[in-house]
Design a protein around this nucleic acid. Sequence first.
DNA 1: CGTCTCCTTGACGTTCATCAAGTATTGTGG
DNA 2: CCACAATACTTGATGAACGTCAAGGAGACG
Lengths: 244, 244
Amino acid sequence: MHISCAHCGLQRICFPKSLSSTEIAQLDQIVSSHPAVPRSSQLFNAGDAADFLYALKSGVVKLSRFDQAGNEIIHAFYLPGDVLGMEALESPVYPFDAIALDNCTFCRIHRDDLESLAQKIPTLNRQILSMMAQELRLEREHFDQLLNKTAEERVAAFVLSISNRFHTRGLDSTSFRLPILHREVATYLGLTPETFSRVLNRFQTHGWLSWRRKQVDILDAEALQALAEGCAQPECHYRARKRG
Amino acid sequence: MHISCAHCGLQRICFPKSLSSTEIAQLDQIVSSHPAVPRSSQLFNAGDAADFLYALKSGVVKLSRFDQAGNEIIHAFYLPGDVLGMEALESPVYPFDAIALDNCTFCRIHRDDLESLAQKIPTLNRQILSMMAQELRLEREHFDQLLNKTAEERVAAFVLSISNRFHTRGLDSTSFRLPILHREVATYLGLTPETFSRVLNRFQTHGWLSWRRKQVDILDAEALQALAEGCAQPECHYRARKRG
DNA sequence: CGTCTCCTTGACGTTCATCAAGTATTGTGG
DNA sequence: CCACAATACTTGATGAACGTCAAGGAGACG
């Protein structure tokens, strides 16, 4: 049975974020539980009928697809409280695969139910739009992390970005377990595993970061921040070109 | 005075896309005209209060900002019929600059008016979500065009993408004027003007494309398509790595 | 304990950014 | 309408960052 959103620890991040208690009660009517998805299984695949939105309760999910050349493209990692499937509001099918990187649990909402309810509750309507806009913002952030950035800048920005998301969820933002393979992080950042490995090695040497297997420890957030923002560091020979 | 959406040539692309004639009449009530914006001027800047959504009637607009290092990042080019400002539905201010690349004309809608009307018209509500989702899809397409792609693949994909958008608008999709500087296209694609110039030169040599100043002529769409998809071409020594 | 997958480390080559200089085109004022 | 300036684009030489290939090591799982 579904636990009421009113008692869920993720209500500050998830759907109920801006709703009143009576509105949350209405939301509860259309929220149901979804069978747990084990590690490496898909929640849905590209091309599946997009009937539901999913709220991630626990675990981590990657949103990905394979391009014509057979390379994996990873567009997003979802953490507890995030909502999956927003992009399908444009089309009848999901455009991407959603794959559990850990054992995952979900709430789910039928999109027709959500649409009907949103038509009655303006706050919910605004909330949906806001979540959609956030998805767009995150994608553009991801884009910015890659464009004209060196491998070191990308990794630094990624670590800080994940750290912030842990912080938002009230978790330890300097030491945490991240159930994502290095290979997948590299793919997300448009790098090869080899390059990613070398960057981690350099960060460790400088005492900025320890990231062994799935355990991440941020040792010098300021150094990483400076690097992510493209400020000069002795090791970074490559400089972004200046504005004309 | 505002021309009714019912008589606008862009209604198949713009807001009225999926609305009935009575609904379009209601929409007309909240749509107003906006003073023309001359070339190189901004429609709005990052940080401005985001009170309005704008529908581009004529001209081309770029959505951009400057990063910490002072480099321009261009996230999108808008063509007639496109709607600007969707991303601001999450925040009270625009997160980007919108700059006219040509003399531009706009319709505009106050976001509060739109929200109220959408609460009454479910079709409009769905339409707004769909436009938002499309914005997200285009951004991800943009992302895919850059990730692990060579300069040639990026340019080929860009030309075809623009061509498709002209086609959607019922315009000539093989020969058209594109009022975007080469430098701006290069920036959009994460390249330098030099590299962009060299790619155009190669395409011209092969007889695939002629792009002089602002006049674009696609001479061999299939060759460009093959290149954009990463299929082998004699000139392209770089091959995408295969899926593991 | 053995196998599989993940990660690491090294040597090398390619693509593209950078620097620099030159040519074409647009815009402006006389 | 022409001269000049400013901007946009082109072309060439050079080097750096990172992808590729190859092989070895370490952790996970049965």
